[in-house]
Simulated scan of single mutants.
Amino acid sequence: MRLVSMIAVFAVMGGVAMAQSPSTSEKLGINSALGIAPATQDFVTEAANSGEFEIQSSKLALDRGDQVSKTFAEQMITDHQKVGSQLKALVQSKNIKVTIPDGVSSSQQSMLDKLKSLKGADFDKKYRDDQYSGHKSTLALFERYAKSGDNPDLKQWAEQTAPALQRHLKMAQELNGSASN
């Protein structure tokens, strides 16, 4: 009964949030909690933002991280630059009417600012935690869009990209289990 009440509250909040901004329910995690696919613009925005966060945070790791973090960071930069290029090319070639953001979200910028203030083991711990949580939420985003997204080309791309994100999540989980130096 309590679960039904929570779902009803999320549904009402989602309706209110949708009236305010098309991406609010996605940003608040309501869509994710209910297993609802994001709108196409929300998917593209969140996919681009998360990829850019991976690149920027991993560039910091190349400067501040231990060798284990640096090795992981190199892979993240390479892979997420490739995925970002694929997204831009797909949107352009299929003339999908969305805007691809250039940077990160405000919450991701706060995370980057926090990382910039850390060094040594504190940096590695925060970087590794961010990588795990970021890949977990990004994988869920891609899986929801692949299952129920409304643009067939993006839906197929999300489905094709999800296994790489699953590998990244597993790598991030292993990274979190390794000892910091």
Results as ranks from 00 to 15, higher is better:
residue 61 A to C: 07
residue 34 L to D: 06
residue 46 E to D: 08
residue 49 N to K: 10
residue 62 L to A: 01
residue 41 Q to S: 01
residue 32 S to R: 13
residue 42 D to G: 00
residue 37 A to F: 02
residue 40 T to K: 05
residue 70 K to C: 12
residue 76 M to Q: 10
residue 30 I to F: 03
residue 72 F to Y: 15
residue 40 T to C: 06
residue 56 Q to T: 13
residue 35 G to H: 08
residue 57 S to T: 07
residue 19 A to W: 15
residue 54 E to D: 03
residue 30 I to D: 02
residue 44 V to T: 03
residue 67 Q to S: 14
residue 34 L to V: 04
residue 24 T to W: 11
residue 40 T to R: 06
residue 17 A to F: 07
residue 65 G to Y: 00
residue 53 F to S: 14
residue 17 A to V: 03
residue 68 V to D: 12
residue 23 S to L: 13
residue 41 Q to W: 01
residue 57 S to M: 10
residue 36 I to R: 15
residue 62 L to R: 03
residue 50 S to E: 09
residue 50 S to L: 11
residue 63 D to A: 14
residue 61 A to Q: 05
residue 44 V to F: 00
residue 24 T to F: 14
residue 23 S to I: 08
residue 57 S to H: 07
residue 51 G to M: 08
residue 53 F to V: 15
residue 45 T to K: 00
residue 23 S to P: 01
residue 66 D to A: 04
residue 38 P to H: 03
residue 38 P to S: 04
residue 36 I to P: 07
residue 57 S to N: 08
residue 52 E to N: 03
residue 58 S to D: 12
residue 63 D to M: 09
residue 63 D to R: 08
residue 40 T to H: 05
residue 62 L to N: 05
residue 72 F to L: 08
residue 51 G to V: 03
residue 34 L to A: 05
residue 26 E to C: 02
residue 43 F to H: 01
residue 39 A to P: 07
residue 31 N to T: 02
residue 32 S to N: 12
residue 19 A to G: 11
residue 35 G to E: 06
residue 20 Q to V: 12
residue 36 I to N: 11
residue 25 S to A: 15
residue 63 D to H: 07
residue 44 V to L: 05
residue 72 F to H: 10
residue 17 A to H: 06
residue 65 G to C: 02
residue 71 T to S: 13
residue 58 S to N: 08
residue 19 A to I: 11
residue 50 S to T: 15
residue 65 G to A: 05
residue 26 E to L: 04
residue 64 R to I: 09
residue 32 S to I: 04
residue 73 A to K: 12
residue 75 Q to M: 12
residue 69 S to M: 10
residue 56 Q to M: 15
residue 66 D to C: 09
residue 69 S to A: 15
residue 60 L to A: 14
residue 58 S to L: 11
residue 66 D to P: 06
residue 40 T to G: 03
residue 38 P to K: 00
residue 55 I to A: 07
residue 21 S to M: 03
residue 59 K to F: 07
residue 34 L to P: 04
residue 68 V to P: 06
residue 25 S to T: 14
residue 61 A to R: 05
residue 48 A to C: 01
residue 29 G to R: 04
residue 34 L to K: 03
residue 24 T to I: 11
residue 62 L to K: 04
residue 69 S to K: 10
residue 39 A to I: 11
residue 49 N to L: 07
residue 73 A to V: 13
residue 49 N to F: 15
residue 34 L to H: 04
residue 15 G to F: 00
residue 27 K to E: 14
residue 20 Q to K: 14
residue 67 Q to M: 11
residue 20 Q to N: 11
residue 34 L to F: 02
residue 23 S to R: 09
residue 40 T to E: 07
residue 31 N to Q: 10
residue 74 E to G: 14
residue 71 T to R: 14
residue 49 N to C: 09
residue 39 A to K: 14
residue 75 Q to P: 02
residue 15 G to M: 01
residue 74 E to V: 06
residue 44 V to D: 01
residue 63 D to Y: 02
residue 64 R to H: 15
residue 46 E to Y: 00
residue 64 R to V: 08
residue 68 V to R: 12
